[in-house]
């Protein structure tokens, strides 16, 4: 390299490439796909208003099958299921919507209302878990990400800057705190995905063993929220509070789980 020629042009190019990559990650759906999705959504709403809840639910599920599963679609699907008379399926939908928007008051109200209809209750959570439930996995991840990048930038600034070091140090502490909080929140939700919740779709008895003639352990109401501990064939070992038991896989539906191989969320 010629030391008498400028050398920073390559770094500028790398920074531009990085920015392009970041922007590409956040690219929204193309206009045609968005219009089509919006049309289906509106059509489903009209079907719902006309009392054709089954048709509305089918359209919302069509949207989910197209990869469009925002909170609004899940919420409306749950509403349609509830109106159809499937309260446990509604609990499943509301819980899925709650994962995406845990602070949404409408979701909480409808989830509680549906649970009241089935007689099931929400699982008890500790105070720290309740605080971490105030943000979704995506929000906590963004906070952690922002904290991470900001911490790195401030660390660089602190090492290079000759002035305002106290201010930079204070900002660095705040960004590290944001990073840790974000990691805690994301870790909480990741735990819910790795040991996923499931909604019992019809009243069933949890058994002591994964056998059809095993001894009954405790009863589960339709709509009850349980955690999946492990799987054995067509049986799932579930936990409700401190109790664990086995139920047939067909009796419940997973709320949201990480797929074993791919990292996409499995609704």
């Amino acid at each position: 390299m010629n030391p008498f020629r400028p050398w920073f042009g390559s770094i500028r190019a790398a920074a531009l490439g990085t920015l392009t990559a970041v922007l590409a990650c956040a690219q929204p759906a193309g206009p045609d796909a968005a219009v089509a999705s919006n049309e289906i959504f509106q059509k489903a709403g009209r079907a719902y208003d006309a009392g054709r809840y089954g048709e509305a639910a089918g359209l919302y599920e069509q949207l989910i099958a197209r990869g469009q599963g925002p909170m609004e679609v899940l919420f409306n699907l749950a509403n349609a299921r509830f109106r159809e008379g499937h309260a446990s399926a509604a609990v499943l939908g509301y819980r899925r919507a709650w994962y995406l928007a845990p602070r949404d008051a409408d979701i909480r109200a409808n989830l509680q209302f549906a649970l009241d209809q089935t007689g099931a209750t929400l699982p008890a959570v500790t105070l720290p878990a309740r605080l971490l439930q105030q943000g979704s996995l995506r929000e906590w991840s963004w906070l952690a990400l922002a904290g991470f990048w900001l911490s790195a930038a401030l660390t660089c600034g602190l090492w290079l800057a000759a002035r305002r070091r106290a201010l930079l140090r204070g900002l660095l502490i705040c960004s590290v705190a944001a990073l840790l909080l974000g990691l805690a929140g994301a870790g909480y939700w990741a735990g819910l995905l790795r040991r996923p919740e499931a909604v019992v779709l019809q009243p069933t008895q949890a058994l002591f063993a994964p056998l059809a003639n095993a001894t009954e352990h405790f009863a589960l109401l339709a709509g009850a929220l349980v955690r999946i501990e492990q799987q054995s064939g067509d049986w799932l070992q579930i936990a409700r509070g401190r109790q664990t038991g086995w139920i047939p896989r067909a009796r419940c539906a997973t709320v949201c789980a990480l797929q074993s191989r791919s990292t996409a969320l499995n609704w």
């Binding site: 929204p28 759906a29 469009q68 599963g69 909170m71 409306n76 990292t263 996409a264 969320l265």
Partner: peptide, 15 residues
Amino acid sequence: LKPAPARWASAPQGS
């Protein structure tokens, strides 16, 4: 019901 989302994502959530 909730109104339509402001933006329709191109990829599945979280991918």
